[in-house]
Amino acid sequence: MNAISNAIATRDNGPGALVAQHREDIELVMPSHMQKRVGAWVRTTQGLLRRDEKLLKAAQNDPGQFMAVLLDAARLGLEPGTEQYYLVPRWNNKKGYTEVTGVRGYQGEIELMYRAGAVSSVIVEVVYDNDRFEYRPGRDKRPLHEIDWDAVDRGELRLVYAYAVMKDGATSKVVVLNKGHIAKAMAKSDSAGQSWSPWKTDTEAMWLKTAAHRLTKWVPTSAEYIREQLRARADVAAEQAPPTAALPQALTAGPDEDEVVEGEFVEDEVA
């Protein structure tokens, strides 16, 4: 087999081909609104592998781990290789090689909040040294953040904050993190010190992600929230419904004892 044939065989049996082979599995775990885009999702992932040699090598080292990460992204309905969901080659000391790990980005955290249906808007912003920022819990409903958009240099990253405005107009808990909080979050990341880590390549985005992730403790991020709200409304409606008037005996009488009635129970599901 010549060099060209070898290259074709490697390509056809590589991670890109693996993604295509598992297209049905990926589609199966995706949220329904994403399933019609599964073809584009697969092609985008294959394109990432072609453009990033380190990512391709990590995927080749452990194809099973790579597919597990992709299925996680698909289950969440997030786009891999974007600020919704990073694909990161990470060194695994136990295995002795790099593997692909998934890291939810700040846009992914925000997307999950919107999808749950409880919020009308999500605000996540970084504060630089030259910005004006004021927020006193208990006094201020929301932070005051003023930016000089004409400034050539806003200084260094100082703070990051996040909050959501709920559908009823209420403001969620306001999350404010400083450099110390960010340093603790970085310390929990095995890859933070690596040159390819998003902590190095996209520092501001990782600050935003950390604040957005902290906000998820206070804001629903699951579509189950919608179903619970609908169930609660249905229960209240049922309790408030007027009682049914008693029907005449002739209309309420059931079948004779010897009569066999065929039927089925239908359970209404609240989507």
Score class of each variant (00 low, 15 high):
Gln35Ile: 01
Asp62Val: 08
Thr44Leu: 15
Ala20Gly: 12
Asn61Phe: 03
Leu78Ala: 06
Lys54Thr: 12
Gly16Arg: 01
Gly77Asn: 07
Trp91Glu: 05
Leu87Glu: 04
Thr82Leu: 03
Leu48Asp: 02
Met67Phe: 05
Glu99Asn: 09
Leu49His: 02
Pro80Arg: 02
Tyr97Gly: 02
Pro31Tyr: 08
Asn93Met: 14
Ala59Lys: 00
Asp25Lys: 07
Val88Glu: 05
Ala20Gln: 13
Asp12Lys: 11
Arg90Glu: 14
Thr10Trp: 10
Pro89Ile: 03
Glu83Ser: 07
Val100Asp: 03
Arg50Ile: 06
Arg90Pro: 07
Leu56Pro: 04
Arg90Ser: 09
Asn92Lys: 11
Asp12Leu: 11
Pro80Asn: 08
Leu56Trp: 10
Ala59Val: 06
Gly39Ile: 11
His22Val: 03
Ile26His: 03
Asn13Gln: 04
Arg37Tyr: 07
Gln65Leu: 13
Leu71Trp: 08
Arg51Thr: 12
Ala73Glu: 01
Leu18Gly: 10
Leu48Asn: 00
Lys94Thr: 14
Val38Trp: 07
Met34Tyr: 05
Ala59Cys: 10
Leu78Gly: 03
Ser32Val: 15
Pro63Ala: 05
Leu87Asp: 02
Thr98Ala: 10
Thr45Trp: 01
Leu18Tyr: 11
Ala58Cys: 12
Ala73Ser: 14
Gln35Ala: 12
Leu70Gln: 03
Arg51Trp: 08
Asn61Trp: 08
Leu55Gln: 01
Val42Ile: 15
Thr45Glu: 06
Met67Glu: 02
Thr10Pro: 08
Leu71Pro: 01
Pro63Val: 02
Met34Ala: 11
Tyr97Thr: 03
Glu27Phe: 03
Asp25Thr: 05
Asp25Ala: 08
Asp72Thr: 07
Gly39Pro: 05
Leu70His: 00
Ser32His: 14
Asn93Ser: 10
Glu53Gln: 12
Leu48Gly: 00
Asn93Ala: 13
Lys94Val: 15
Trp41Lys: 07
Gly96Leu: 09
Leu78Asn: 02
Val88Ala: 05
Trp41Asn: 00
Lys95Glu: 09
Gln35His: 14
Arg23Gln: 04
Leu70Trp: 04
Gly96Lys: 08
Gln35Asp: 10
Ala40Cys: 13
Leu28Ile: 11
Leu49Tyr: 04
Asp72Pro: 06
Gly96Gln: 06
Thr82Tyr: 00
Gly77Met: 07
Leu87Cys: 04
Arg51Val: 08
Lys57Phe: 12
Ala20Val: 13
Arg11Phe: 13
Glu99Val: 02
Ser32Tyr: 15
Tyr86Trp: 13
Val19Ser: 04
Gly81Pro: 01
Leu71Phe: 10
Leu87Tyr: 04
Thr45Ser: 09
Val69Met: 01
Gln84Lys: 02
Tyr86Arg: 05
Gln46Val: 12
Ala17Ser: 11
Met67Gly: 00
Arg23Asn: 03
Ala68Phe: 06
Trp41Thr: 01
Val88Tyr: 02
His33Gly: 10
Lys54Tyr: 13
Glu79Met: 06
Gln84Leu: 01
Gln60Ile: 05
Pro80Ile: 01
Pro89His: 09
Val88Ile: 15
Pro80His: 08
Gly39Glu: 13
Glu53Met: 13
Val88Trp: 01
Leu18Lys: 11
Ala20Glu: 08
Leu48Cys: 10
Val19Cys: 10
